[in-house]
């Protein structure tokens, strides 16, 4: 009886919270499906910045969005060929 009453009067047990949580998770994944074009631009920018400090293998560079569970990570694999002397001097 008490359970029935609490279900009747409490907002927290409603199915809308299930809906909201499911929606939130689904959108995390949906929203990370960025266009290949954007990913290419991001790649080019990354190369530019990292090249200021090290010599990298541009052809082997990999940039991907990795989503597992309810988190999303930007994973970049950038093979380094060597450090730049000029970068040390800057500091």
């Amino acid at each position: 009886m008490l359970e029935f009453l609490s279900r009747l009067f409490s907002r927290d047990n409603g199915s809308k919270n299930v809906a909201k949580e499911r929606l939130r998770l689904v959108l995390v994944h949906d929203r990370t499906s960025i266009s290949p074009q954007l990913l290419e631009t991001l790649k080019a920018d990354l190369i530019q910045v990292v090249s200021n400090y090290m010599e990298i293998d541009e052809s082997a560079l990999e940039v991907n969005l990795d989503s597992s569970g309810n988190t999303v990570a930007l994973v970049a694999n950038i093979p380094v060929k060597g450090m730049k002397r000029t970068a040390n001097r800057r500091i």
Partner: peptide
């Protein structure tokens, strides 16, 4: 249904 907590409210949808 919104009052019973069984439908997303205006605030919920705007929030999302």
């Amino acid at each position: 249904m919104v009052r019973q907590g069984d439908m997303m409210s205006i605030e919920d949808i705007i929030d999302i």
